[in-house]
Design a protein around this nucleic acid. Sequence first.
RNA 1: GGAGAAGUGACCGAGCCGGCUGAAGGUGCUCGCCUGCUAAGCGAGUGCACGGGGAAACUUGUGCCGAGGGUUCGAAUCCCUCCUUCUCCGCCA
Length: 426
Amino acid sequence: MLDIKRIKNDLDLVQKGMEKRGAQIDFSSFLKIEEDRKKFLLEIEELRHQRNTTSDEIARMKKAGEDAQPSIEKMRSVSERIKELDKDLGEVEAQINDFLISLPNLPADDVPKGKDDTENRLEKTWGDPRQFDFKIKDHADIGEDLGILDLGRATKLAGARFPLYMGAGARLERALINFMLDIHTTEHGYKEALPPFIVNRTTMTGTGQLPKFEEDLFKLDGWDYYLIPTSEVPITNIYAKEILDEAVLPLKFTAYTPCFRSEAGSYGRDTKGLIRQHQFNKVEMVKVTSPDTSFDELESLLANAETILQRLELPYRVVTLCTGDLGFSATKTYDIEVWMPGQDKYREISSCSNCLDFQARRASIKFKRKGAKKPEFCHTLNGSGLAVGRTFAAILENYQQADGTVTVPDALVPYMGGRTVIENER
RNA sequence: GGAGAAGUGACCGAGCCGGCUGAAGGUGCUCGCCUGCUAAGCGAGUGCACGGGGAAACUUGUGCCGAGGGUUCGAAUCCCUCCUUCUCCGCCA
């Protein structure tokens, strides 16, 4: 959510930012309603003041044995009027809130303008894609052939776009989760969390998934509960409605959770394999920071995610998302894209974003500087560290052998019980 | 699922036969004083949101005692609904 004062004071700037995003937004009716709000508020406060002082007077008069009836009569109508205005004010406030809560975050100055992912800016490339001297397979075929993925039977259990890992596959997925969590907690200073996988409407609204993107979520029938699409949602909201001590910042959390996405509107895309699933595993990193450091923290967040790929020796590149590809809550996002030999291209495996105070304002996450009177909103950041299913897929494709087996990356061997190669388990 | 109890400021905890309580008292915290050090002691301060005035320090208005309604001139205090927590019983990983 943007600061309403900023919209009023820097309308040009806000409008430019929205245009850069390609969003057509009409601020004129908003400004008019905002004026109404102020008018109502002024009158209400005036009347309430009158009521408060007169009520005190009535108490005094009654105590003194005087006749308070005329004042009581008068206040009766005043209260009536307050009630009416209250209703008007409530309606106007609801309209303003609906408007504010549906506005996306403003893009940072250095975010390139563009319409879609083809216009993202390449920042760096790491590692050289391996040259294969045999006919390579994609990860779905490798996994199915080895008997460590059973996507066919998963369809029977749930439907399309659900994973079923078996044997060394299940072990590899678990190994990756543990490997990532261990690095983030012991080397990068994150505190591990294990949050609910189901959250309420307020929490979903805090990070920006609601109210605009309800169709992307799984909702529990008959409950105001949603399956989380990412652990960013519960983790960022941990300190909602709280005022933190400046000294505790930055807060750094990492969490493994499954993620659930309806993938509405992506029919036909990435239908094969683990790339796009209704349920997938992810290790997430979340930071709650002071506004002074959030962009530095974004750089280190990105570096923390890159570390995982470097240790796994998987080639990748980093892009800055252009405005057309930028998420609703983010002001700037780096995507890490891993090399997928089976598809002969780089695919997103992590997304690292600075949301500034956009989410903090929605969820009311504040901090107080030492000696300061007023609390300020924190900045929040989040990044995948990494999407586990896609990492699994990348390992299969990059580490496949001519005989159909898959070599285990050195860093994962201890997490695989010493196993160095995944062989046919059929 | 059944029966009962409770939700007050950073925390503990009064108030709850309606008005002088934004809220006693205590703890904690901040600043100042005192002190050889530590402890103790003394003094002052210590919520959030929105609005008015002021360059600022600050000042002033309104709202907030789980949430939302209602009664009343006036509600932390009375009534209704909901949420949450705790205890006991049942069930259960």
